[in-house]
């Protein structure tokens, strides 16, 4: 087919290859879906990926019990119904669930506090996997510990299943605020930062130099409107995850489209005003004082 010189060696599952997919998802919306119909609605609306799970966080919160990795049949059905990347969740520390998802060929694994933790001290050693991982964080120390375990993407945790953006804002401001301070610190102060954050010194030194995490940082937990998505982006998130916010609203399809447009045009208030019209009722949402289990506290 071609007359130019052609090599054939290749390496899979390397850090640049895993981190590369996170880079490709920037500026996009990753939507939680529980079946093929929802996955198609998400893809039609312009989602850059879907997260396949059995119950959205709002239902996990309502039903209680132990939340686990989804049924492989359900994940296969969603993979077959869309052409965009498919992510799926495993319990914190449950490396066998992760082995299973990798065998199923999912594109990204979320080691997620929304599911019931399997290990109360250890997260998964994510370097052992070909598939990339995303992990949640409430502060910079947690983000850097996850990166030191091999996470290729960080998402601020927020409080999943609440439709309330306040926790996501708190986490984004905490992570980004500390990064700003570190860029102002002198080299001797970085040792103290590493100690305070309980994070590896080389990663702290890297932030001092670059001003940002070595992997992309997205926002999750509590996004229910186009304005919420744009708020997360203006605060510095590089993309958004929307869980219950779409399929727990009155009209998921137009809301999904509107959130996609709001994430792209996040600084253009005229476009945000236009896409915020006529979306029906958003998910009801709950206040932080009304919940008894904070998922964001899970993770060590």
């Amino acid at each position: 087919m071609s007359s130019v010189e052609s090599s054939s060696a290749r390496a899979t599952g390397t850090y640049p290859v895993k981190r590369g997919l996170a880079e490709m998802l920037k500026g996009g919306v990753i939507m939680d879906v529980v079946n093929s119909e929802q996955a198609k609605i998400a893809e039609d609306a312009g989602a850059c990926a879907v997260m396949a799970l059995e119950r959205v966080p709002a239902d996990i919160r309502r039903d209680g019990g132990v939340a686990r990795m989804s049924d492989p049949d359900m994940i296969d059905a969603i993979k077959a119904s869309v052409s965009i990347p498919v992510m799926a969740k495993v319990r914190i520390g449950h490396f066998v669930e992760a082995q299973i998802l990798e065998a199923l060929g999912v594109d990204f694994i979320d080691e997620s506090e929304v599911l019931t933790p399997a290990d109360e001290a250890h997260h998964i050693d994510k370097f052992k996997f070909t598939v990339p991982f995303v992990c949640g964080a409430t502060n910079l120390g947690e983000a850097l510990r996850r990166i030191s375990e091999g996470a290729c993407m960080i998402r601020s945790k927020g409080e999943a299943g609440t439709g309330n953006i306040v926790e996501a804002v708190r986490h984004l401001r905490s992570i980004i605020g500390d990064m700003r301070k570190i860029t102002q610190a002198d080299s001797a102060e970085l040792f103290d930062w590493a100690k305070k954050l309980q994070a590896p010194l080389p990663l702290v030194q890297e932030i001092a130099e670059t001003g940002w995490l070595p992997v992309p940082m997205f926002c999750a937990g509590g996004i229910a409107t186009p304005a919420d998505a744009a708020l997360a982006m203006q605060l510095g998130a590089e993309a958004v995850f929307v869980g219950s916010g779409i399929f727990k609203s009155d009209e998921p399809a137009p809301r999904a489209k509107a959130i996609v447009e709001a994430t792209t045009h996040f600084r253009d208030a005229h476009i945000l005003a236009k896409v915020s019209r006529g979306l029906g009722t958003p998910m009801t949402g709950i206040g932080m004082d009304e919940i008894n289990q904070r998922y964001a506290d899970r993770g060590w």
Binding site: S6, S7, S8, A9, T12, G20, P85, D107, F108, V131
Partner: peptide, 14 residues
């Protein structure tokens, strides 16, 4: 293929 088949490789450009 899917992400698990993503790869890096050297290519030659004249």
């Amino acid at each position: 293929g899917r992400q698990v088949d993503s790869f890096e490789a050297d290519i030659t450009i004249d």
